[in-house]
Write a protein that binds this DNA or RNA. Structure first.
Lengths: 110, 110
DNA sequence: TAATTTTATCGTATATTTGCGATATACAAT
DNA sequence: ATTGTATATCGCAAATATACGATAAAATTA
């Protein structure tokens, strides 16, 4: 069966890396991750305080990081405490390394 | 002068990391980068061959990687040879490390 | 000069992302 | 029961991303 454009699939690693990169592709989400990686955990309100965005918007960015699997939330009504998902974090480290471990010591470029 | 949402600015590093992540946020662009990091350099047509996308679309993805500074192109009519920009590559390695170097050995999460 | 090769760009359609105000939810405190 | 607090979700508008066919550009070859 001939491979056509329609049935093409990217590898799982490629797709996963792209998804993780997309999760990191907004400055607000970078700040959230950095904050969580330094403070261990925090509430939505803390993130609203340090970001130049409305509460609804921050909540949406949090949701995207959750969907990417990078963070977990624990409900503690009316608050919600977030922290980094260590398993996904390690997978992300590994996947980004598969790209950036290259050094080009022995290559000349154009 | 009070800081409002309107005059807020993300740090340069945060903005740059977000831009680099956005450049990596599509599987086709990941494949292009991996290919270039393994083959040293290649032509647009080689990338069109290995991607499930029309030539115009591949050209667009290449353009985004160029805009992010991650690759350079050398015109060799009618061909164009691309390769990774080593300086930007190193900056990307460094910026992604500022996030992922964290290990959480001493933290408990939620 | 005409045809060929390779790539970029234009125009356009569709989908996704970003942002916010308003509202809903869920529990605690009064 | 009502009020207050913290957060998520809805609905919408604007901007951006994705994809492709058609076309343009730029040199090489016939």
């Amino acid at each position: 069966m001939k491979r056509t454009i329609l049935d093409f699939q990217y590898s799982e690693d490629t797709d996963e890396l792209a998804k993780l990169a997309k999760a990191l592709s907004h400055p607000a989400r970078i700040i959230i991750l950095k904050h969580l990686s330094q403070l261990n955990s925090c509430y939505t309100g803390d993130l609203v305080d340090i970001l130049p965005l409305a509460q609804a918007t921050v909540s949406q960015h949090i949701k995207e990081l959750k969907n990417a699997g990078l963070i977990d939330g624990v409900v503690n009504p009316p608050k919600v405490k977030y922290c980094i998902n260590q398993k996904k974090w390690k997978q992300a480290q590994k996947l980004f390394n598969t790209i950036f471990e290259q050094d080009f010591k022995k290559f000349k470029c154009c």
